[in-house]
Design a protein around this nucleic acid. Structure first.
Ligand SMILES: [Zn+2]
Ligand SMILES: [Zn+2]
Ligand SMILES: [Zn+2]
Ligand SMILES: [Zn+2]
Lengths: 539, 539
DNA sequence: AAGGGTTCACCCAGTTCA
DNA sequence: TGAACTGGGTGAACCCTT
């Protein structure tokens, strides 16, 4: 037999270990390391090659490999207490300490309950908590099931004997990287359809058309919000598991859709009201004047300004890129066009890159956008930029000539819609239909177009959006703005009608976008701008 | 044997050293020197013969030899943070500071401050201070046993004259003679191996076998690189000026304009200013002003103070009332319980009266409330007190035990949620859901809870509210405060998301309240506190 | 005893300022 | 340039409940 002292070795770094920590034999430092770092979602980066050997000496140098090793040897995140658990524990400790102190100490200070002097304090206490809590310490079947520190683990049996001989197959942990980076085209289109349908929900419509309808029609909030909080997953149904679960007939426990939960829409509309409420609008009661109030005007103005930056520029970017593009095109025309893509089409496609760049710029000028987290910004732009571009371009479309007038180019660069016919599929038809059915009256109204762009930008169900609720809020805010704008310009009835039609256009736009993406996917990646490749995940 | 005090000597200049810097033992000045110069491109020239002795005196004469020496003794460029890293770190520090400030300012509950010099805080919170003293008594003699980070230091002989070897097992760096400009990967690794093989523990070496570190930024890693370098020190655009001016008139100042001041006026004017602030923050939009400004902080602080009155108390009120209650209960148990109400439930209900009394006190400490007309004060309290109480109690809820811990009672008074099951209807379910779905992270944040309480208090559509507009304005101002508080603590996206969720909680609370009221209405009035009878119009 | 969390001195980056 | 300072990460020692 070995010397028993040496028997335990940290599975991570090989240092001396005292016992199990988070389901694996580790040293104290790796235990602390794991506790501190396993739940943070920040990505460590290995300064070397992701295969560092972890020793007591080297363990400090590379957090990434150390953490990876931790997980590899079976350390289990679930055993780390949540914030709530910790708070609870602290509280309990505090309690015990107080009790001990007051018992051990003089005790006379605070506890003079005059009337009950004959009874002990404990009993006194029981009058209040009669048979609920005090009991439960000993034999109340309610909470007796397991008293493990961490209620997450149900199947863990701490009483295993012979820890050494039994091979340490402890808990099978479910630590795995989510890695759901599956941004497939399928996925994308799926999303778009969903969008369309949900937006058409009458509840949704009515929530805008009537100023303050709270409509219960809508079923549960379709926002799963999986990504954003790390612990809700673990704490969510904690209550369900313990005390209340046993002898009490529990009728509805983890129902997803509860009748009393307020529909998300109504919360959003509430929030939007907050956003636009002004002193004046409150003061003069409900006499919502048709004119835009200051907040509304400010919001609209923000868009206009953001767009300014997009309009004024300049030859350089476009010129430069134009040349690049031309080179590409020429190059392709002269030589090796191993693919069928027509140069004119390719030209248009790459022109898209220019547009996208500007849209990014523009988006960055919208505060609500700028304040979002990086991930969401990327997701929204990636998912929405082409739609936005098409929306903007609709304004520039000359329906008599069937071509776009690209601004800010010396010689007006007209791109005829015919080029899209070159693309396979029905991208052309879609686009044509979209524009043709877009009444020039709205299509040429800058304000409308800009608001529509914002609505499109803040589409909550783009792939990989994290804070869907926030995006949704912002989108609704722009829907509201659109309605208000229309009301301020048109008579009530007409405004509503236009509003509906515009919503229709947004949905159509999604459709067109799909087709456009098809076209892009059909192109040889080597011939298009890197930006586009990134945006569309062309591989 | 050496004097252990002098054990550490700068490997570059021989000055006193404190520890490792950039992977070598150096003094502070050589550390700074290396950080500043190691990454610069410029070639230093030795004014002498490239062999200067570097001493504390001479070290500043020749940068070239000094830097060479640095590299020779193993200082490692890779450990100098990149500009990007630094920006990131700065930002994080900034965030933390903000968070600490805004939370610390209000004295978050359980967090003990560092080790305060004992008497910074006064009678303010005796419960806490007592507990820390006992703590700090115990563990004074903690750790001198702290061995150098590197335990193998024992084998490190600082007196070795062979300066070219790397003596200890720290990081093997890729700094090599700058002589060869052709830093090919081959070249580099070659050097790496050469250097290390001769001097390093093979085990250590193998751990970094595959290292391909290139001195500056590795190019190999295909990082998406949408880094957030939008950290720009900007124009500090403090709203403090307007803010303070707004802050002042709150109390008494306004007399000068009129001998007789209608309370509303001051409120309204405040609201207008507040709104102005909101505006400018929208307009300027830059997220720089994430910190709460003075006015905001003051507003929050008012709540905290108001709440203090609610926390510190005291046995007397509760004790007294406890006795009252007990009488009631006893009375009921012994004799004429002509109604079915369970004593425990009745107990809880009457405990409610205690809470309500405190809430009234608290409300009276809020200026905006105090300044309202009597009728509205009554209406708001009547309509809102139970909701407020539930909101406050959410903070005290122990979800593992399913019970509340009523503070400021010696032996913790636990009220199990089960008592509510005794009530008919689904009050219990509602309450449980409300709390269970209330993320502890927010639920236990005193600031959040207090602001939510204020929002609930100023609910404009309570029955019999006269000046709805005034109430609404006040409520909006607290909504605004909530938003700002969240922004000051969380990143933009996160903040908004939380904001929405909290709004939802408020709505839910209304629902729960209805149920609760049903319970109360079901109770025999003779058994409950008169206050309750008044509040709930029990007849 | 096991195995959770907590504490605090220490190490070493960066930052400030004279 | 360099002394003094700030602050995040680390780990040995310790505290607490089961
Ligand atoms: Zn270890
Ligand atoms: Zn590594
Ligand atoms: Zn030195
Ligand atoms: Zn020299």
């Amino acid at each position: 037999m070995k010397n028993k002292v040496d028997l335990k070795v940290c599975g991570v770094c090989g240092d001396k270990a005292l016992g199990y920590n988070f389901n694996a034999v580790t040293c104290e430092s790796c235990k602390a390391f794991f506790r501190r770092n396993a739940l943070t979602q920040k990505e460590f980066r290995c300064p070397f090659a992701d295969d560092c050997k972890i020793t007591p000496v080297t363990r400090r140098f590379c957090q990434k490999c150390r953490l990876d090793k931790c997980i590899t040897i079976g350390m289990c995140k679930d055993l780390i207490m949540s914030e709530e658990d910790k708070a609870q524990k602290r509280q309990k400790v505090e309690e015990n300490r107080a009790k001990k102190r007051s018992i051990g100490g003089s005790g006379s200070s605070n506890k003079r309950m005059k009337k009950e002097s004959s009874l002990t304090d404990l009993q006194d206490n029981e009058m209040y908590s009669s048979s609920y809590n005090t009991d439960s310490d000993q034999d109340n079947s309610v909470s007796e099931g397991y008293q493990l520190n961490n209620p997450n683990i149900v199947s863990y049996n701490p009483n295993q004997e012979n820890k050494n001989t039994v091979n340490d197959e402890r808990i099978a942990c479910s630590d795995e990287k989510p890695s759901d980076d599956s941004l497939t085209f399928q996925n994308l289109t799926q999303h778009f359809y969903n969008v369309n349908h949900s937006n058409l929900d009458p509840a949704f419509l009515s929530s805008f058309m009537n100023s303050n309808t709270v409509n219960n029609n809508e079923t549960a909030v379709p926002v799963p919000s999986y990504n954003n909080n790390n612990y809700t997953a673990s704490t969510e149904n904690r209550l369900g598991e313990d005390a209340s679960s046993k002898d009490v007939p529990r009728d509805v426990q983890s129902q997803k859709s509860h009748p009393y939960i307020h529909p998300f829409e109504s919360i959003l509309s509430e929030a939007i009201k907050l956003e636009y409420d002004t002193y004046s609008s409150i003061a003069q009661g409900s006499s919502q004047s048709r004119q835009l109030n200051d907040a509304e005007r400010a919001k609209l103005n923000e868009l206009v300004l953001a767009n300014k930056a997009l309009l004024t520029p300049v030859e350089e970017e476009l010129g430069l890129l134009g040349n690049e593009l031309k080179d590409v095109v020429k190059n392709q025309m002269s030589g090796q066009n191993q693919q069928q893509t027509d140069p004119a089409l390719l030209d248009l496609i790459n022109l898209t890159a220019v547009g996208i760049r500007r849209i990014i710029k523009m988006a960055k000028k919208i505060n609500a956008f700028k304040n979002m987290c990086q991930e969401d910004q990327v997701a929204l732009l990636k998912g929405g930029c082409t739609e936005i571009m098409m929306m903007i371009s609709a304004r520039r479309y000359d329906s008599t000539k069937n071509s776009w007038k690209i601004p800010s180019i010396q010689e007006s660069l007209n791109v005829n819609v015919n080029v899209l016919k070159l693309a396979k599929g029905n991208a052309y038809q879609e686009l044509e239909r979209f524009i043709r059915t877009f009444d020039p009256k709205w299509r040429t109204d800058e304000n409308i177009i800009l608001i529509l762009c914002a609505i499109v930008l803040f589409t909550p169900d783009r792939p990989r959006v994290i804070h869907q609720d926030v995006v949704k809020l912002e989108q609704n805010s722009y829907y509201y703005l659109l309605r208000r704008y229309l009301e301020s310009v048109y008579a009530g009835c007409e405004a509503k009608s236009i509003f509906l039609k515009l919503m229709q256009k947004i949905m159509e736009l999604h459709k067109v976008n799909e087709e456009l993406i098809n076209v892009l996917l059909d192109v040889n990646p080597s011939q298009v701008e890197p930006l586009l490749i990134e945006i569309f995940d062309l591989k």
